[in-house]
């Protein structure tokens, strides 16, 4: 499949889990992909394995919360492949610092933990969009897809208040940005996954995951590939008239 031939994609949090699946699916579809991750080893391994498959890939390390580091990473992507057409804001953290690997309740959460989650999950998305938008605007095209969550739309007992707030904020960010940049041929959408089987998820208690599975009409957890396929759709021409939207990939869970 070469639906994305000639496109340059930057995927944050691409070292593992959903981000890795998104980056891999774009590379397999013909895009040149920058695998960005806070963890350099993960990013470089993922990119090396992509190249071994005959895909175009480069591994980069940056903390998305650090604007200067993001700008520097984007410069490297542009040097390697040209200006970024597709930005996937996937990097995110969901600390579970409470008892038994559960979320910290709001009344016990440290302000530093709250701030760090917003810095990565929300400000990180702004930093990356800020860095690539001038190039997209100049090209008159672009695709930005932000990783939200059903937890950003309704109460979800598994995550912490910081994560829920950051994912809700990404929805507002998506909708507003879509309105601003639509006239330049750039679409901006969000994906709201339900319970997806990832390393991040396995950090939580298994009973919570089993409860989510039973509450999901499709009676299974999602896979990273399920989510990646929706990203590939939203960044393709198949979704050329879709912008400002939040697509639930949740197996019917919560039906937000």
């Amino acid at each position: 499949m070469s639906s994305h031939a000639g496109r340059v994609a930057l995927v944050t949090g691409a070292g593992r889990g959903i981000g890795r699946a998104i980056a891999d699916s774009h590379a397999a579809a013909g895009a040149a992909v920058a695998y960005l991750d806070h963890d350099r080893e993960l990013a470089e391994t993922a990119a090396r394995e992509a190249v071994a498959k005959g895909w175009q890939a480069v591994g980069l390390s940056a903390d998305v919360a650090d604007y200067e580091a993001v700008v520097e990473a984007c410069r490297k992507v542009t040097d390697a492949f040209g200006p970024v057409d597709i930005l996937v804001n996937n990097a995110g953290i969901s600390p579970k610092t409470g008892a038994d690997g559960r979320r910290s309740p709001a009344w016990e959460m440290s302000p530093e933990e709250f701030r760090r989650v917003l810095d990565v999950n929300l400000t990180g998305a702004f930093n990356c969009a800020r860095a690539v938008l001038p190039g997209m605007k100049a090209m008159g095209r672009g695709r930005i897809v932000n990783q939200s969550s059903v937890a950003g739309k309704t109460f979800c007992d598994i995550v912490g208040v910081h994560y829920a707030a950051s994912k809700a904020a990404l929805i507002g960010f998506t909708k507003h940005l879509a309105g601003e940049v639509g006239p330049f041929g750039i679409t901006v959408n969000a994906v709201a996954p339900g319970r997806i089987d990832t390393p991040l998820m396995r950090g939580t208690a298994s009973e919570a995951n089993e409860a989510a599975r039973m509450a999901t009409p499709l009676r299974r957890l999602g896979s990273p590939e399920d989510v990646a396929a929706t990203y590939l759709f939203l960044t393709s021409d198949s979704a050329s008239f879709v912008t400002g939207q939040v697509v639930d990939v949740a197996g019917g869970w919560l039906m937000t």
């Binding site: 879509a178 309105g179 639509g182 679409t187 339900g194 009409p217 499709l218 999602g222 896979s223 399920d226 989510v227 396929a229 929706t230 590939l232 759709f233 008239f241 879709v242 912008t243 400002g244 939207q245 697509v247 639930d248 990939v249 949740a250 197996g251 019917g252 039906m255």
Partner: peptide, 17 residues
């Protein structure tokens, strides 16, 4: 398609914003 195999009960807007 199977690309949407984990999407059910959703509504997708296609309206250019």
């Amino acid at each position: 398609s199977s690309d949407a195999s984990f999407i059910t009960g959703a509504s997708l807007h296609v309206n250019g914003g």
